[in-house]
Write a protein that binds this DNA or RNA. Structure first.
Lengths: 340, 340
DNA sequence: TTGTAAGCGTTATCAT
DNA sequence: ATGATAACGCTTACAA
């Protein structure tokens, strides 16, 4: 395989200069038809392909953007990335992905690396909480546009695309109340993260609005996995007055709870209703399908990409900052379908 | 935000030359301790960060690799990518992802683009079948290493990492036979793709080995989704002598079939056994959990990454080509657990 | 319309 | 041990 052809090779072949070749290739108006055709012909003949690296170095734009997530194989994140790539590929951008494994130091390094790679923007779902966000301060202050999605950090003048988690929590709880549930428990994942706090707040406000008491013992903090959910269910079912419903911020945790309730022969939805969060694929496939709040991840990715594009296009003129909040969509299934 | 600092800024500050700065930064042995320290100090002071783009142009190595898949949000592919990124990030590589949407022309363009971007390698699960692989001929012949994973194309001297689909099909079928099933149907997805053919072949060989007849009417070709699976089940259950088991190349198709069988009140596993392929997450969460063949996607990704690294490291000396075949792992669950 | 030359930020090859 | 210079492949004033 011979070396890759450059514009110099084309130039030499035609006994003209590289500048002319460049212009011809870029359809510069002030170039004769003849040379343009000649150049393009020899370009294909020599199988010339533009070296984007050189272009990037020259222009200062790499046409690469970085997407940073905890784990790429979580369905929520891979769906967001799907949306981002679908939106950005037609605009000539390449998507570089990196996983933080929810490790803060690693996240910092990744961001540094991406910036060194001269990415044109960074879309990130951060592992940091708002308490420690100052550690990222010097990064977001650089020229490279940052866009936070889902897990947002509150920096002034930084764009974000998030779900209306509060509304999701509110709707889910209200729905359970409408089903006649009176003692609704809540599975809370992580007080540190804004989005879980917001779902929790939605839950509390829905209770209050309906005149139901908020009972701290009905709130369990747990990891987002099946085993933890099972344990959480054990805990609340041991209470003197056990709940008759769960609104869970995690589908996986909820699944564990449902499994435990099944073992106790608690009938869902007749005696106990549950609603999850995330609309994980499995929720709809269970015999007793699980109601859940959908996060429209693909849409979120597309939106984040659009916000990025807007920001880039207006770079010179005004610095745009946009904070988009997407609606949460409660999907009612059998697990909370007492009435209908 | 001031412009990014370059080695020239450091040089100017210290009244030395950029070459010296470069050497100091790269820990070149022939540099005095003093200058090294001085340089490193001013580097941090000016918040200097190496521009990887310039380095890439100079060295001809971008430290980027391209990963090309049909859809990034399919759990199998996102898991493979997870493995790839986990393996390659510590080696200083960035992973660029691109989705073909199973569109062959798009795949071609993507590959062309990635090559223009000067990626150091391409890991791909191709949409092409071996019949049309010649269209990619001129691409794989370039200097950039190609590695096929899962969906492999048979090019001479091109590496690949695949699953032993034949063995997966064989084991699944054999297992069903051992459960006492006598009339095993097969859900086949796409005759064009090698891997489905191999699973099918494993199925046939297992039947033959056990002296069971191969009946063409027990083989249904279908799309990989629930509705198609439901239809397929309808078809085979209408046969004069309906089967008593299904080995399906698709978990989703199988789920549709299971749903239909439930409606017919066919008892699984007592009267009917099923085994799927892919070990989709939902298979283990169903009340009647579904047996399936696991593909170890994360492992596959890691392996593909390792093959790439090996190939790059020995670039100068020998051209390495490796064809790794990973074992398929049958996971037995309730849906085929008659005996135990 | 085309050529000349500088520059993007590095590193490598000469010298000194 | 350090400096000068060229080179990677491209674009773009400025000249002609």
């Amino acid at each position: 395989m011979s070396k890759k052809a450059t514009i110099y090779d084309i130039a030499k072949e035609l006994k003209i200069t590289a500048a002319t070749v460049s212009r011809a290739l870029n359809n510069n108006p002030k170039i004769s038809e003849k040379t343009r055709e000649l150049v393009q012909a020899t370009a294909t003949k020599l199988n010339y392909k533009q070296n984007k690296l050189a272009l990037a170095l020259k222009s200062g734009k790499s046409k690469n953007i970085g997407v940073v997530v905890p784990y790429i194989n979580r369905i929520f994140f891979s769906s967001v990335i799907r949306g981002i790539e679908d939106e950005l590929y037609p605009k000539g951008y390449h998507v570089i992905i990196a996983q933080t494994h929810d490790n803060k130091e690693k996240e910092l390094k990744i961001l540094q690396n991406l910036l060194n790679e001269q990415v044109d923007g960074i879309l990130i779902s951060s592992s940091y909480s708002n308490n420690e966000k100052h550690k990222l301060d010097y990064l977001v202050k650089k020229n490279t546009p940052f866009i936070f999605f889902d897990r947002k950090l509150n920096f002034p003048n930084i764009s974000s695309v998030t779900l209306n988690d509060y509304q999701g929590g509110y709707d889910a709880t209200k729905h359970l109340i409408e089903q006649g549930c009176m003692r609704i428990a809540h599975f809370l994942v992580d007080q540190e993260l804004e989005l879980y706090k917001n779902r929790f707040k939605g839950y509390k406000d829905a209770l209050e609005k309906s005149g139901l008491p908020f009972l701290p013992e009905y709130v369990v903090t747990l990891k987002s996995d099946i085993e933890a959910g099972r344990e959480a269910a054990k805990t609340i079912m041991k209470l003197p007055l056990p709940p008759d419903a769960i609104f869970s911020s995690t589908d996986y945790g909820l699944l564990g709870a449902v499994q435990y309730l099944n073992e106790l022969s608690v009938k869902i939805p007749d005696d106990f209703c549950v609603v999850g969060f995330s609309n994980a694929p499995f929720t709809q496939f269970l015999e007793t399908s699980i109601s859940s709040v959908d996060q429209s991840p693909v849409e979120m990715g597309k939106t984040a990409a659009k916000v990025f594009l807007e920001q880039i296009e207006n770079e010179q003129t005004v610095k745009i900052c946009k904070n988009v909040v997407l609606p949460a969509k409660l999907i009612v299934r059998k697990s909370s379908g007492k009435i209908n």
